[in-house]
């Protein structure tokens, strides 16, 4: 189910900590990155890989919002809803951005390219309203930023 690189990452952690359970978070991150979700199939796979019960894997997976049970878009846009950004209309911006990117129902665009999600403070308050696309900060989310995002 995973690429060689992904599997290697997991194995490295497992070896370092000498524990399957410690490699669980790494496994979840890797699978989310490569398959854009951790659903029942993925949970069974990870459970088998690490020798854990599916119930335990699911318990950890569902704890985190970044580990999703439905597929995210190719690019995940995170709009900050921390107090600073909130005061700068981040919630409205998120809605606008969704329309802008063609997202009608839920979080993800029909072509699977983008997901837009409101998240807790990402710590980029001096560029409020802050946002991230995948691993990059793209705040402040002004008109220009929205276009830049769409061009990705």
């Amino acid at each position: 189910m995973l690429t060689g690189e992904g599997l290697r990452e997991i194995e490295t952690t497992r070896a370092q900590e000498d524990s399957s359970r410690h490699a669980l978070l790494t496994a979840l991150r890797v699978v989310q990155r490569e398959r854009r979700k951790v659903g029942p199939e993925e949970i069974v796979y990870i459970a088998g890989l690490l020798g854990l019960s599916p119930a335990i894997v699911e318990g950890v997976a569902r704890f985190y919002d970044q580990i999703t049970d439905t597929p995210t878009g190719l690019h995940v846009v995170r709009v900050c809803r921390g107090i600073t950004c909130y005061l700068r209309q981040s919630e409205r911006i998120a809605d606008d951005l969704k329309g802008f990117l063609g997202i009608k129902d839920g979080d993800t665009s029909p072509d699977g390219k983008f997901s837009v999600r409101l998240v807790e403070c990402i710590g980029d308050c001096d560029h409020a309203p802050a946002g991230m696309v995948d691993d990059r900060f793209v705040g402040p989310l002004d008109e220009q930023a929205l276009h830049t995002i769409r061009e990705i």
């Binding site: 029942p40 119930a55 699911e58 997976a61 704890f63």
Partner: peptide, 26 residues
Amino acid sequence: FSENVTGYKELQFIRRGNHVELVSFQ
């Protein structure tokens, strides 16, 4: 009980806060 006494590990909590729910996988 499921984790430590019988070792079957079939029950676990998912999600957080108000929405924590006890589940058996699938």
